[in-house]
Amino acid sequence: MNPAVHPLLEAPWGAIIGVYFMLVGLATGVTLVAYWVYPEDARAQVRYAWVTTWMAFLSLVAGSVLLVVDLEQPARFHLMVASFSNLGSPMSIGAKLIAAKLFLLAVYLYLLARRRGAVAAGDLSLTGSATRALFSTVPAALAVVSVALAVYPAVLLARTWISPLAHTPAAGVLFLSTALLMGTAVALMLACLGRLRADLALRERLRDVLLFLVVAQIPLLGLWLLSVDTNHAPLATALSHLIHGTGAAVFWLAVVGVGLGLPASLLPSFGRSRAVAICGALAVLVGASITRYLFFSLS
């Protein structure tokens, strides 16, 4: 018999949860990259923080809506957030992380809205110790929560039989790296649009970070492969599906070709072109999203 036969005919979770994991990756990655890479100019900083925070907020709201759709009732999602009886469950922790991040994002958007008003009135300095404290602690807290939220899908899936590819020590690192790839790609696209496009220095820094992450993803994937225990039958089967089975075409074409190869060749040579930067970033976004989906769905 096939040692990797599933306990149930149909996996309990479907494509909705796979897309949810992609959106969580995007929401966390945008926050993290915006925390570390930002414009020099104070006005541009506020503008950049405003658009990236909205992007993270909307992605997380969309992910939460998908969860509610999957659970069929908003009250069921609320039960997961409000129940503290099993803090050993990764899903319970994940729900609370989502709630915490949504709250912090809302607070930060409120702070940024006030700051935008002040900047528009010509006040570029942060006045008041409380304001300064909030502007330093809220983004830091958001970054901390985002790291946990980026990795939590790997912890969650490692407890299931539906995602054997997550049953590896390096899976958490890949979930974090794909979140960073998605976030940096979206930040770069945002930096190419609107009034932010005038900031060439920001665009180049984001492009450099994206290139670094793309190149770093190659040894990370290699290390993840090395961490696969081929004596673990379900994992070995899923890996063979990924490398030369049902998921191979998507993996080699979308993840490796489009997600890594295309941006690695496009971005260094044509980095000043906004169109090329957007294309490269879009390719990274597609590749990293599909990586997360494959880790969720392949078995």
């Binding site: 659970l71 009886s85 050993g88 899903m91 407890r159």
Partner: peptide
């Protein structure tokens, strides 16, 4: 260990049961 809402509990005699009122059908 998976149940996020604590709906699955172990009785003193070891039986593992589901408190249906606490189940939010997340399927974990």
């Amino acid at each position: 260990k998976a149940c996020p809402t604590g709906a699955i509990v172990r009785l003193p005699n070891g039986e593992v049961v589901i408190n249906e009122g606490d189940c939010n059908v997340n399927r974990f």
